Simulated scan of single mutants.
Amino acid sequence: MTPEHAPARPLDMQRVLVLEDSQEDAEAIERAVSRTHPHLRLEFTSRGEGLVDRLLATPEVPGIVLLDLNMPGMSGYAVLKSLRARPELAEMTVVVFTSSTAPAEVDACYAAGADSYIYKPLNFDLFRTVLKGALDYWQQNKGQSAGPSSPSVK
């Protein structure tokens, strides 16, 4: 079967793949999600190289990807484009979660197929609230129960 006709991989909405090179931000994401969504399993990687091949080698893929743009090696934008180039990964929700607020980057990410673009707040309480809203929204959007209702983030 050719890649353009390959079926989408089943989603595991209890798994969130986090691409983040900052250890401090990765720890903040882990703390925030463990408080708001303790049932989710987070998987962390700091590099995008080889990610598509690793995902294609698994029978199920994470339902949500939190993607930092500014990473060493393969940029988050390049990761986004490589994920969206594979029909088998088309159902994965990609949330760009980054410190960049440049309008050109926001537009480029949406044009490349990002589902959401969210700025990382510096204040931890706001960081946790924004992250919770994004996870709740996308879990509910994919037909999963995410717990108590919260404002939509998109």
Rank of each mutant, 00 (worst) to 15 (best):
T2K: 10
A6V: 09
A8Y: 06
A8I: 05
A8H: 09
R9E: 02
D12R: 12
M13N: 14
R15L: 15
S22D: 04
A26N: 04
A26G: 10
A26P: 04
E27P: 05
E27I: 06
E27A: 12
A32V: 14
T36K: 14
T36R: 15
H37V: 06
H37W: 03
P38F: 06
P38N: 01
P38G: 05
R41M: 07
S46M: 13
R47S: 15
V52L: 00
R54S: 09
L55V: 02
L55Q: 00
P59C: 00
P62I: 04
I64D: 09
L66C: 07
L67Y: 08
L67T: 03
L69I: 10
L69W: 06
G73C: 12
G73Y: 14
M74L: 15
V79N: 03
R84E: 09
R84S: 06
R86P: 02
R86L: 00
A90S: 08
E91D: 12
V95F: 02
E105T: 01
E105N: 08
D107C: 00
A112H: 03
S116C: 15
F124K: 01
F124Y: 04
R128P: 12
R128Q: 15
G133T: 07
G133P: 06
D136Q: 11
D136L: 01
W138N: 08
Q139R: 15
K142N: 10
K142M: 05
G143M: 02
G143S: 07
S145A: 14
S150Y: 11
V153E: 10
K154M: 13
